[in-house]
């Protein structure tokens, strides 16, 4: 049975359908990703799943309970990392755990027992008494994640956990999430980093204008939508090269500004040709989730 499932979810603001017929099923122990451009409805979907807002129509079950009717009971087993940090600035790191644990009805001794492990998880063992304002962005994000673990949740919601973090901080966050998955916890996360989704997610959906436009494991989605190899060509004579060779050497190609994207199944013939074209610069790489994302959602800005 799924830990969390939703059928035909709909939510509109005014006449804008922000979530438009979403179906999901998340299995225990999975890392489930929700990708989508800005304004696609990711945060709204999470808020619906958490029972913070009621859908216009559709059903949600979490741990076999109906949401939002039984959201309060279910949230005892859930941890949430919101898109924007809302750590309590009136308290120190350790007091944040204390105060937050109380909201779950935990006793002082229970929380105190958990704090060392949580501090360690967040990499903040030596900053236990620091004020929130004195923490870096990465520390705050890790603390927000550790705080979400204070009730030892089975299911963790993360809304863009690594947005705004530097590569070091991001890798640390990923390690933390992997540890949680290894402990058997279920994770649902939204992200704008395709690399993050590719590394962490067992399954993911792509959401656009409130609708699911793709669903599957990252590798499956890449195999399904994009040829295995992508070559990006830059330079002044691209148009000329394209007219002479593209049809013959690329399974598919597209022009984006000054760049020509060339999709092929192995690219050997293409490589041979390109090594003779000294005036062109190029990058040859395997197809990625980002290619899928851009193919399905288009390249225009959303807001």
């Amino acid at each position: 049975m799924s830990v969390l499932s939703a059928q035909h979810l709909r939510k509109s603001y005014g006449d804008q359908a922000v979530v438009d017929g979403v179906n999901l099923a998340i299995e225990k122990g999975q890392c489930f990703g929700i990708l989508g451009p800005n304004g696609a409805g990711k945060t709204t979907t999470l808020r619906l799943l958490l029972g913070l807002i009621a859908p216009d129509s559709g059903q949600i079950q979490m741990f076999g309970h109906a949401i939002p009717q039984q959201a309060r009971e279910v949230r005892q087993r859930v941890g949430v990392v919101p898109q924007l940090d809302n750590l309590d600035p009136d308290f120190s790191v350790i007091e944040n755990f204390m105060v937050y644990g109380r909201y779950f009805g935990l006793s002082k001794t229970e929380i105190a027992q958990r704090i060392p492990a949580l501090l360690d998880f967040a990499g903040l063992s030596n900053r236990a008494d620091a004020k929130i304002q004195d923490l870096s962005g990465g520390m705050k994000r890790r603390l927000t994640l550790a705080r979400a673990l204070v009730n030892d949740p089975d299911l963790i919601f993360l809304d863009e956990p690594t947005t705004g973090l530097d590569p070091q901080a991001r890798h640390l966050m990923w390690q933390g999430l992997r540890r949680l998955l290894n402990q058997g916890k279920t994770i649902i996360l939204t992200t704008h980093f395709m690399e993050e989704a590719e590394r962490l997610c067992d399954r993911l959906v792509i959401l656009d204008h409130g609708r699911l436009i793709a669903e599957g494991a990252p590798r499956e989605l890449i195999a399904q939508h994009i040829e295995p190899c992508v070559t990006e060509l830059y330079g002044e004579n691209i148009a000329h090269w394209r007219d002479s060779f593209a049809a013959q050497l690329c399974a598919r190609h597209e022009n984006v500004g000054e760049t020509l994207f060339c999709y092929s199944s192995d690219g050997a013939a293409l490589m041979q040709n390109l090594h003779t074209q000294t005036h062109l610069r190029f990058l040859h790489r395997p197809a990625s989730l980002e290619d899928v994302f851009l193919k399905l959602t288009g390249r225009e800005l959303r807001d």
Binding site: L50, L52, R75, V80, Y103
Partner: peptide, 14 residues
Amino acid sequence: VQKTWDAILNTPLT
């Protein structure tokens, strides 16, 4: 401003 209420709403409190 601090979104303290939002944080609390993610716990079993309403």
